[in-house]
Design a protein around this nucleic acid. Structure first.
Length: 470
RNA sequence: GCUCCCAUCGUCUAGAGGCCUAGGACACAGCCCUCUCAAGGCUGGUACGAGGGUUCGAAUCCCUCUGGGAGCGCCA
């Protein structure tokens, strides 16, 4: 039987979830849970000095908002937890011991200063900055001597001097790296905390993760994790490295640079399904050019349709999917989306009517502010162009419109016929000045739908005003 | 500095030696439809980073260069 696919997303709580990470999370989710496997969430908070719990909360909320749900995570243990690395110390302790006992790891007493000096010297000599191996061959007497100085050792992995590490990357294909280029890396810090290479690899294995999708920046680190897991004789997941996401200027999206975060998009009113449709196509093909429902994402996702080159974030494309998403909102959903922007005193029915009327003309909830005055207040000043349209129509036109409105009311069809008869105007020459006088702008929903939504007193006042001013 | 990864329209990309005078989507421009906007339909411009090979034939394979990115941390 084919073993079940288990994927994971392992954010570190050092900032808000940005688009690049969201994409990695989405793809992992699609490959796992959405395809009948499992998807788990692990918080990589092994560095106590950085980040904070507020970021765990916000990242979880962002993930949930995007529609990604997880089978296990910090809020949902399935027996393989805990799912926060800061709580997994005891698990790591046994592994350190085993590694050291079997000779795969050794204590390193070098100080940060010593390491820094060595690194600079190597760089100056055009050598790659690697751990020089100072503590590699220390005997027990030498170790005791250093310990007696009060030095707290870190634990380093002993990388083989020779050999080649080979693996098949899920998106890049066969990879191979010479062990000699690696250098012994730290497993456990002097303060006892685990290092990324160690806890990340070990946890994936312990949590039965079968496929790891992560950023390109981990590609060169993968051999280390492979070596480590092999030394531990633990199951090794398959790794796939996604190209990084760049911003419009070509710089990598990152937390530090404050690049587009999921939270920001949500606050601006982007719909999760829009972000999903965009992300699904960013560096990935196979989805049709048309809108795809989130429930169909997994069906349209495939590892071998992943691109290898870094992709740029393009707001115009996101907005395209946003427009598609807004169009597909039911009136109830649209009201919910718009809620905070609508007048508090409006009834549910009024909200529904407003949403139904303007949904096609809004890209963000904030755009509501452009339309509220049309339905219930003073119109902003006209543009010169719009104003000249009113002038061209002339006072008589608006007087006729006023009379016609008295007679037929808000029925635009009847109003149009009446006006045509009275003024001889038709088509755009008839409706355009009417629209501008009534709404203060030249675009928007059909007048037939718009006119009944404007209170009669306002309609009369605007037509009167147009007749006077022009 | 060393190692690794990447390279097709402005952007996302199709393309796995002849189907490519390079296709689609977004964006842009024009036209049609329409009271307008949006949607829809049609049309248009814009790309294989450079140079060498291999081959009857290369966007596709190889090499060099260029450009971009990553890694080399007691960060993740």
């Amino acid at each position: 039987m084919e073993p079940i696919t288990v994927t994971r997303f392992a954010p570190s709580p050092t900032g808000a979830l940005h688009l690049g990470n969201a994409r990695t999370a989405l793809f992992s989710f699609l490959l796992g849970r959405a395809s009948g496997g499992r998807f788990i969430l692990r918080i990589e908070d092994s560095d106590r000095g950085r980040g904070g719990p507020e970021f765990i909360v916000s990242q979880l909320a962002d993930l949930a908002w995007l529609g990604l749900s997880w089978d296990a995570g910090p809020d949902r243990d399935d027996g393989r937890g805990p799912y926060r690395q800061s709580e997994r110390g005891p698990i790591y302790d046994g592994l350190y011991e085993k590694l050291e006992f079997e000779g795969y790891a050794y204590p390193c007493y070098c100080t940060p200063l010593e390491l820094d000096v060595a690194r600079r010297a190597q760089l100056a000599a055009s050598q790659p900055p690697r751990y020089p191996g100072t503590c590699r061959g220390l005997d027990s007497a030498a170790r005791a001597a250093r310990a007696a100085e009060g030095r707290q050792p870190a634990l380093r992995f002993r990388v083989p001097d020779a050999g080649v590490i080979e693996f098949e990357d899920l998106v890049r294909g066969p990879q191979s790296v010479a062990a000699a280029t690696l250098g012994d890396f730290v497993l456990r810090r002097a303060d006892g905390g685990p290092m990324f290479f160690f806890c990340n690899a070990v946890d994936d294995s312990l949590m039965d993760v079968t496929q790891v999708l992560r950023g390109d920046d981990h590609l060169s680190n993968t051999p280390r994790q492979l070596l480590l897991l092999q030394a531990l004789k633990m199951p090794v997941p398959r790794y796939g490295h996604l190209p990084l996401l760049l911003d419009a200027s070509g710089a990598p999206l990152s937390k530090r640079r404050g690049s587009t975060t999921v939270g920001e998009l949500r606050e601006r009113g982007y719909l999760a399904a829009a972000v999903g449709n965009y992300l699904l196509r960013l560096g990935h093909t196979g989805a049709p050019d048309q809108w795809v429902e989130p429930a169909e994402f997994a069906r349209n996702f495939s590892l071998d349709r992943l691109g290898r080159a870094p992709a740029h974030f393009d707001a115009a494309q996101l907005d395209h999917w946003q427009r598609e998403a807004v169009r597909r909102l039911t009136p109830e959903q649209a009201v919910h989306w718009l809620d905070a922007e609508l007048p508090a005193d409006w009834s549910g029915q009024q909200r529904l009517e407003f949403a139904g009327l303007l949904q096609g003309n809004l890209l963000f909830p904030a755009d509501t502010a452009d339309w509220l005055p049309v339905l219930r207040g003073d119109l902003p000043p006209l543009t010169a162009e719009d104003s000249s349209v009113l002038a061209e129509a002339g006072p008589a036109f608006f007087e006729a419109a006023l009379t016609a409105y008295h007679e037929v009311g808000a029925d635009v069809g009847a109003l149009g016929r009446e006006l045509k008869q009275r003024t001889g105007r038709k088509g755009a020459a008839l409706f355009m000045p009417l629209r501008i006088a009534l709404t203060g702008r030249h675009d928007g929903p059909e007048l037939a739908a718009l006119l009944p939504a404007i209170p009669a007193a306002l309609v009369r006042a605007r037509l009167t005003g147009a007749a006077r001013a022009h």
